[in-house]
Design a binder for these strands. Structure first.
Lengths: 200, 200
DNA sequence: AAATTAAATTGACGTTGTCAACTTAAAAAC
DNA sequence: GTTTTTAAGTTGACAACGTCAATTTAATTT
C-alpha cells in the first residue's frame, strides 16, 4: 500500500495509460478528457502534459498497446494445434473478430476516425504493422502447404483484413439488423472468404 | 442576384445543407462547426438552431443526402448493359468503391465514428437501408440467373458490403502501404469475393 | 390594424484542450 | 553538504466550441 502523497508522483505515465484504457473501455472514447483523467488519478488537469505532448499522443500510446495485444493474440495461435489447416485460418479469423467485438471501444480507438495519423506516431505504426504481419505469416503458411492460392500474400492479407475489419465495423456501429446473429454471419463470412482464396 | 438583406432569410435550411456539404467535402468533418457555418452563410451563430435541433441533426440530414446519392448511383446500374452478368456485379462493386474513395470526407460522415445513431434519425436509417437494399437486389438478381450460390441474399449482401466497406476504410485511413495500387487491390478484392460467392 | 408566430440576434455558460508562469522536490554538480 | 539544475506538478488564463435563454424583428394570421 504505497502511501505516495509525494508531490512527484513517480509512475504517473503508467497510471495514465492504465486509467486511459479503463475510461475508454468502460465509457467510450468521448468519456476520456484530459481534465477528467487527471482528476480520477488525483492529479491536476495539466499534469498529464508532462508525459504526453497532447491528448493525441496519449491516445496514440494507448492504441499502440492495443495493437501489441492484437499481435500477441494472433501470434499465440499455433498451427500445430489444428489437424485441418483450414481450422488454423478459422482460428485466426475468429481471434480477430473476437478481439474487435469483445471491446468495441478499444477497437474504435485503433481504427475509428479520430485523426490518429500513423505517420505522426512511429511506435503506433510499428505496432500496427506487426499485427498485420501476423496475418501475412498465416497466409504464407497456408500457401506453402498448398491450401490457399499462390499470389501476393500481402494482397490476400489485405483482403482478409478488410473483410474482418468491415464486418467488425458494421456490427459495432449497429449497421446490421439486430435480428441477424453475428456469430452466424461471421462464420459465413469466413467461409466465403476461404472459398474465394483457397486453391481449387 | 438576390439582394436578400432581409432579416428573415427564406431558404436558410437548404443553404445550411449545401454549405455543410461544401465544408465537409473540402475541409473535413472537423472543419464544420456551428459557429463557422453561420459565419460563412452570413448569419448569426445560433441561426442554424431554428432549422436543426443540434449539430447532430444537421449532420444527420447531410448524411441522409449522401446515402440517397449512393442509392441512386447503385440503382442507376442497369443489368442489361452488361453481357457477362459478372460484369454487372463488378460494376456495382466499383461504383461503391468509387463513391467511397472519391470523397473520403463524405464517406466518413456516413460511417465514421461520430455517434450518429441511426435509431435517433429515422430518415437517415431509411436512406441507409435503401442504399443497402440495392445491394440485396443485385445479389438476388445474380442468384436468379444461377451466377451466385443460393442462400440468404441478405447475408451475402452483408459480406459484400463488409468487404467494400473494410477496404474503403483501410484505404481512406491510409492503413495500406501506399506503394500498393488501390485500383489493383480493389479489383483483386472484387475477384476474390466473386470467387467465394459464385456458383461452382 | 392587431395578434400571433416563425426566424433571427446577442449575451451568457459550461466544457474542453492547452499554453504560460510559477512552485516544489529530486538529482546532479560542486 | 550545500548549491544548482532540471524534472514534475500546480494554478490561472484563453480561445473555440455547442447550445440555452431572453430578446428583437418581420412575416403571417386573425
Amino acid at each position: 500500500m504505497p502511501k505516495k502523497q509525494n508531490y512527484h508522483h513517480g509512475n504517473l505515465r503508467q497510471q495514465l495509460l492504465t486509467k486511459a484504457d479503463e475510461m475508454i473501455s468502460s465509457g467510450g472514447l468521448d468519456s476520456l478528457t484530459m481534465r477528467e483523467i487527471g482528476k480520477q488519478i488525483g492529479v491536476s488537469r495539466t499534469a498529464p502534459y508532462n508525459h504526453f505532448k497532447d491528448k493525441s499522443a496519449l491516445l496514440s500510446a494507448v492504441a499502440t498497446e492495443y495493437f501489441l495485444d492484437l499481435k500477441n493474440r494472433l501470434s499465440a495461435i499455433d498451427a500445430t494445434d489444428y489437424e485441418d489447416a483450414m481450422d488454423y485460418f478459422k482460428a485466426m479469423s475468429n481471434t480477430y473478430l473476437e478481439f474487435a467485438l469483445e471491446n468495441p471501444e478499444r477497437y474504435q480507438l485503433m481504427f475509428g476516425k479520430n485523426s490518429l495519423r500513423r505517420s505522426d506516431y512511429p511506435e503506433l505504426k510499428i505496432a500496427a504493422d506487426e499485427a498485420f504481419y501476423q496475418l501475412i505469416l498465416i497466409i504464407e503458411f497456408l500457401q506453402r502447404y498448398n491450401i490457399l492460392k499462390e499470389g501476393n500474400s500481402r494482397s490476400y492479407a489485405y483482403i482478409a483484413w478488410a473483410s474482418f475489419h468491415g464486418l467488425s465495423s458494421l456490427i459495432i456501429d449497429k449497421q446490421i439488423e439486430h435480428q441477424v446473429d453475428s456469430k452466424i454471419l461471421t462464420d459465413f463470412t469466413i467461409q466465403t472468404l476461404i472459398e474465394g482464396m483457397k486453391k481449387d
